[in-house]
Every structure is written in structure tokens, then in C-alpha cells.
């Protein structure tokens, strides 16, 4: 399985490297969203600073949706679904590989976004350790659920509209916990974020496990 995961992740990252869809489209989109939030909440620095953590994670979630759709589109372009099934790859490996590639891209996006959000919302970054740990754990959860629901909706003709409806409610706890952990880090109370990290870890482990098991049946019949 791990061999297959590495092969698939390498393939997806290479495709992103070639096409730069994430870099040229998803990252700018996320920046636009950050700007719009700033406009919506007004120029009051205090209010923006108070909301910065939440705005950051909602932006990540929106960008994540696009990244998931791209990850699905790569497979379905040239009847790739059949291609994946015929390839002889292990389904669990495909899931882990695609989720890992997605997570890596999201992590890069988060670094860029964090820097820009810190500037736009006048929020100095503090508690870097907690911020980084939160990003890693939350992204693992988002990527796992995203890849899973991407496959669920891939077989349907209403993919674009169905995916967010399925995806967003499930990751609500991730947004909540990650926002809380970020707020704790930014307000210099890193200790208060540890519990939320634990929650994120549980979420990620649960959904990576479920996805790995359930991806086979989905890929075959979904």
C-alpha cells in the first residue's frame, strides 16, 4: 500500500508541478477571499485581528474545495477512473497517495495565506510551533475527508454542487478546532490550544483510517 501511495502522490505532485493550477488559480483565489473578508468586516484593525484565525480557516476550507475538485478532475479527464482501477494499484494506497498530495499542496497554500493574513489583518504571528502543528493536523483531516468525498461525488453528474454540501458539514469540527488553536497561539496562550490539537488529531486519524478502508468499494462501484 505504501509503495502505491508514494507512486500516486508523486504522480499528482508532478502533475501540479507541470500544470501549476494550484499555484496559478487556487492560491490567488484564496488571496481574493482574504481581501473580501477584510472588506466585509471593515477597516477596524481590532475586529479583524479578533476574527483573523477564523477567517484564515474558512479561506483554507474554500480553497481546499477547489483543490479537491482539481484532484478529482485529474483522474476523470481521460476516463482515468477506469485507468486507476485497471492500473493494479491498491485502493487504500490510491487514497493515501491522493490525500497526501492534496495535503502537501494545502500546506504550501497555508504558509502563503498565513503570511498574507498576518499582514492584512495586522496580526503578528506568535506561537509558531502551535500554528504549525495545527496546520499539519487540520490539513490531514481536510485532505482525507476531501479526497473521500471527491471520490464519492466523482461518479455522479452533479459533482460540483454535491461535493461542498457533503464536504463542509463534516469538516465543521476541523474549522472550529483549528480556529480555536490558532486563536490560542496568536493570543500567547499556546497551552490552551493543546486540547484542540488533540481533537484535530483524533479527527484526522479517524478519517484517514475510514478513507483507506472505504476507498476500495467507492472506487469499484461509486
Amino acid at each position: 500500500m505504501w509503495h502505491d501511495a508514494v507512486v500516486v502522490a508523486g504522480k499528482d505532485l508532478r502533475i501540479e508541478w507541470r500544470s501549476r493550477v494550484g499555484l496559478n488559480q487556487v492560491v490567488p483565489f484564496a488571496l481574493v477571499v482574504l481581501l473580501l473578508f477584510g472588506l466585509a468586516l471593515g477597516p477596524d484593525a481590532g475586529r479583524l485581528r479578533a476574527a483573523a484565525a477564523g477567517l484564515f480557516w474558512v479561506t483554507v476550507l474554500l480553497a481546499c474545495l477547489l483543490a479537491v475538485q482539481r484532484s478529482v478532475a485529474v483522474e476523470t479527464a481521460d476516463a482515468g477512473r477506469d485507468g486507476l482501477r485497471l492500473s493494479g494499484l491498491d485502493a487504500g494506497g490510491i487514497f493515501v497517495g491522493k490525500a497526501a498530495a492534496l495535503a502537501l499542496q494545502l500546506l504550501v497554500l497555508e504558509v502563503v495565506l498565513a503570511v498574507v493574513a498576518a499582514l492584512l489583518y495586522a496580526t503578528p504571528l506568535s506561537g509558531i510551533g502551535l500554528l504549525a502543528a495545527t496546520c499539519v493536523l487540520a490539513t490531514a483531516g481536510l485532505a482525507a475527508v476531501g479526497t473521500f468525498y471527491g471520490a464519492v461525488s466523482a461518479g455522479t453528474r452533479v459533482r460540483e454542487t454535491l461535493l461542498p454540501l457533503l464536504f463542509f458539514p463534516v469538516v465543521a469540527p476541523v474549522v472550529l478546532a483549528a480556529t480555536k488553536a490558532f486563536s490560542a497561539a496568536l493570543s500567547h496562550h499556546s497551552g490552551g490550544g493543546l486540547g484542540w490539537l488533540g481533537l484535530l488529531a483524533i479527527f484526522s486519524v479517524a478519517y484517514v483510517a475510514i478513507g483507506t478502508i472505504a476507498f476500495g468499494p467507492l472506487l469499484e462501484d461509486g
Partner: peptide, 20 residues
């Protein structure tokens, strides 16, 4: 599933990735 590595299908679609 277990037979997939032993068969090869040449279909209408190429099962390839355009970017690669």
C-alpha cells in the same frame, strides 16, 4: 480486483494524464 494486474485493456480512452 486481483485479476487487474494480469489483464491489459486497450480501450477508447487512453487512461493517460495530459500534463505528464
Amino acid at each position: 480486483q486481483s485479476l487487474r494486474r494480469e489483464v491489459g485493456l486497450l480501450g477508447h480512452a487512453g487512461f493517460s494524464y495530459e500534463e505528464l
